[in-house]
Simulated scan of single mutants.
Amino acid sequence: MNVLIVYAHPEAQSLNGALKDFTVSHLQAAGHQVQVSDLYAMQWKAAFDADDIVGGPQGQRFDASRDSQYAYANGLQSADIAAEQDKLRWADMVIFQFPLWWFSMPAIMKGWFDRVYAYGFGYGVGEHSDARWGDRYGEGTLAGKRAMLVVTTGGWESHYSARGINGPIDDILFPIQHGLLFYPGFAVLPPLVIYRTSRMDQARYASVQQELAQRLDRLATMAPIPYRAQNHGDYLIPALTLKEDVAAGQSGFAAHRM
């Protein structure tokens, strides 16, 4: 299996750095091919702007969608964007590893999505009609590939429980897993969330490492999160709301899981 790790942490000698290094060595020992996009080490540019279009914007002002579409279609994207898209085409599995900062990913990783998911690659794909509304949410450029989050947080697991003050971890990660991963077609595996990272001793680290190893050994076989595909009959098109007889009485994020 070809595995891409998109990694965001500024300190190599951190818990995240150790887990990333363990992931690489464990996967390679199992015979997988591995590439790592270490965003801080790469000094990844986070902001998507006119400088990402070779030759500049097409009009008198920069239009993010229009210029992204033009650059992608005509081979005029900046080289770093094109290189990450090539890695995604190569990968069978993508692991996104990051610390949970202010209820989301670090800005540098969000910028990776902003720039790499070009119009025509990450979105704006497929037919828009009364029968379909683009190839997305279960379909798209990255369909057939798998993805998983590895997330660390200083909070306790109870803080992110169903009645925890931070809100359920599945709800916090929903915009990432459903919006950034399922949208362009990934089959999204359940996340590995490592809590209370400031209380990590050698014994607990060994347990975390073992849990991570077990996850890595099941990348090809673990059942993905059962999100509802957009164009498979559960949603009204073009309203894109669930039909009345689907998940009756439910609302919110949970209604979009089977």
Rank of each mutant, 00 (worst) to 15 (best):
K145W: 04
D135P: 11
G122P: 00
K145A: 08
V116I: 10
K145P: 07
Y137N: 08
T141L: 07
G122Y: 05
V150S: 10
Y117N: 00
M148D: 00
M148C: 11
W133L: 13
Y119A: 14
A143R: 10
G138T: 01
D130Q: 15
G124T: 01
A131Q: 15
G144N: 07
G134F: 00
R115N: 00
R132A: 13
W133N: 11
K145M: 00
T141D: 03
A143D: 03
R115I: 06
A143G: 09
D135V: 06
E139R: 10
A147F: 05
L149T: 06
R115G: 05
G120S: 10
H128D: 11
Y123Q: 13
H128K: 15
G124A: 05
G120N: 09
Y123W: 14
A131N: 13
V150R: 08
A118M: 12
A143N: 01
A147M: 09
A118F: 09
W133G: 10
A118G: 03
R146C: 02
A147Y: 03
V125C: 09
R132Q: 13
F121Q: 00
R146K: 12
G122N: 06
Y123P: 07
L142P: 00
Y137E: 03
Y117F: 15
G122Q: 10
L149E: 09
Y123H: 15
E127F: 03
A147Q: 08
E127N: 12
W133Q: 13
F121S: 01
R132L: 15
G126W: 07
F113T: 06
G124R: 04
G144M: 06
V150D: 02
V125L: 07
M148P: 08
D114C: 11
G124P: 02
K145F: 10
D130P: 08
A147L: 08
Y123L: 12
G134P: 01
G138E: 08
Y119F: 12
V116F: 05
A143V: 09
R115D: 02
A143F: 07
K145I: 06
G134Q: 01
Y117T: 07
F121M: 09
T141N: 04
R136A: 00
D135T: 10
A118K: 07
G140V: 04
G140L: 02
F113W: 11
G120D: 02
G124F: 04
H128V: 15
L149Q: 11
Y119D: 12
E139N: 10
G134E: 08
A118Q: 12
S129M: 08
G126T: 00
G126I: 05
G126L: 08
D114W: 09
D114H: 11
D130I: 12
G124V: 07
A131H: 13
Y123G: 08
G120E: 01
M148W: 10
V125M: 09
D114E: 15
Y119W: 13
A147R: 02
G144E: 01
E139W: 04
D135R: 13
D130C: 09
K145G: 00
V116E: 08
S129R: 10
F121C: 03
R132S: 13
R132W: 04
D130S: 14
T141Q: 03
G134I: 02
D114K: 08
H128N: 14
V116R: 08
A131S: 15
A143I: 05
R146G: 02
Y117Q: 06
D130A: 14
G124K: 05
D135A: 15
E127R: 13
R115Y: 06
R132C: 12
F121A: 04
S129P: 06
G126F: 03
H128Q: 14
S129H: 09
T141V: 11
